[in-house]
Amino acid sequence: MLLIPCPFCGDRDETEFAYGGEAGNERPADPGAATDEAWTDYLCFHDNPKGPHRELWFHRDGCRRWLTVERDTWTHELRSARLSRP
């Protein structure tokens, strides 16, 4: 069971959160202007490291804020968690 260190709520069970995938994968600001290549990269081609991963978690049953979490996908070590938008 992951204990995610929410900056507002403290260490909370993973079951309170919804996973949002890779962090820093920004939706093209102007979708109409994005090339097919850029759009497909955004939608389908994500980092998949065996090790440290920056990812989004939504504290659904808590403060309802989006967090950017650094977690090791192999050991499950939680390295940091901060608000995605201050």
Binding site: L2, D13, E14, K50, E55, T73, W74, T75, H76
Partner: peptide, 13 residues
């Protein structure tokens, strides 16, 4: 489990 993982352990939840 619902999140990227290579741990081969599985969440108790």
């Amino acid at each position: 489990d619902g999140y990227n993982s290579w741990s081969q352990r599985g969440s108790p939840a």
